[in-house]
Simulated assay, not measured.
Amino acid sequence: MITSIFSKSKPINFIIVFFITLLAFIVASLKLTHEPINIDFILEKSGLFAISYISMWVLNFIVSKNNLVKNNNFEILIYSLFLLAIVQTTTNINMLCANFFVLLALRRILSIRSQKNVNKKLFDAAFWIAIAALFYFWSILFFALIIVALVLYTDNKLNHWIIPFTGVLTVFIFVVSVSILFHNDFFSAFKSLPEYSYDYSVYNSLPFLVAITMLFSFGVWSALFFIKSIKQKKKALRPSFNIVLFALIAAFLVVVFAPEKDGSEFIFMFAPLAIIITNYIQVIQEKWFKEVFLLLLLLVPFIILVL
């Protein structure tokens, strides 16, 4: 039943994930925030919800335009379920904004495949990643995806290797200028700094352990099949799938280096994991196993809510 609903791209799928995402925000508001419910609180949460929901639309656009999945909506369902599993990802505005800009950058990086307007796409991708890094410094790790894309597309044009750095430099100069104008120094406008921590003790709670186990067990199992399937893809599409894999690695490193580990750092893993798991779901031949696999993905976030 679950597979039949999301196996085709339909408007009702976006309505379902809308309510799953809304539930994640409601649970987070009840469990994690202690602010009085007033107009400011509602407006703030509405803005965060809008960013999260639009991010799912961007994810859907990415997979459909780059043929990363077949004509289905499993990726947005999985993304919304991840939000529900780790509701902390819905509370941090800096993380949500950084993730949104990383998705915009990923969209531009993957579109390099067409070899049209490459200069503009490289600049845009670097620009969005630099903007993301302003909200959360370790987002800068996704800059490596631009380098990976240039290597995979065997691009030997010198200007293509220089342009991404000009995109980052543009943002840097702009922020320094703002800092000089409003703070009378060079770096006060930089709110996100290169701090890191290896203290993972916050993950020792039962809800975190269950959620992280779900992410890594489903993710690793699906990734093994994903890596194996890349060789079977059309040659023109292989770089895109490799970039998704590297995006997951970059997202994992963000979690490793995160200075404040409160769960919100996992937001960067959701999009690449959703794409990888969706690809695995598509190759499952046994209908009963596909249903069980999706049912587990669906039930675990709801089980976590009562832990």
Rank of each mutant, 00 (worst) to 15 (best):
S4C: 01
K8H: 09
K8I: 09
I16V: 14
V17D: 12
F19N: 04
F19I: 08
L23M: 12
F25K: 08
F25L: 14
V27K: 10
V27I: 14
L32V: 08
L32I: 06
H34N: 13
I37S: 10
L48R: 09
S52R: 01
S52F: 09
S55I: 07
M56R: 02
W57F: 15
N60M: 11
F61E: 13
N71E: 15
L77W: 14
F82R: 13
I86N: 09
V87A: 07
T90K: 03
L104P: 03
L104M: 10
A105C: 01
S111C: 05
S111R: 08
R113A: 13
Q115N: 15
K120A: 07
A126C: 06
W128H: 02
Y136N: 09
W138K: 00
W138T: 02
I146Q: 03
I147E: 02
N159F: 12
F165I: 09
F165K: 05
F165C: 05
G167T: 00
L169P: 03
L169W: 06
T170V: 05
V171S: 00
F172V: 12
F174D: 00
S177M: 10
I180C: 01
H183G: 04
N184E: 12
D185G: 02
D185V: 00
F187L: 13
S188N: 12
S188V: 04
S192G: 01
P194E: 03
Y203G: 10
L206C: 07
L206I: 14
F208W: 12
L209K: 12
T213A: 11
L215F: 14
F216N: 13
G219Y: 10
F226N: 10
I227N: 10
K231S: 15
K231V: 05
A236Y: 06
L237D: 15
I243D: 06
I243L: 05
V244I: 15
I249P: 04
A250W: 01
V254H: 03
F257Q: 03
E260A: 10
K261H: 07
S264C: 09
E265Y: 04
F266N: 09
F268D: 02
P272S: 05
A274P: 10
I277D: 07
N279M: 08
N279K: 07
Y280T: 06
E291H: 08
L296V: 11
L297N: 15
L297W: 13
L298Q: 03
I304M: 06
L307W: 11
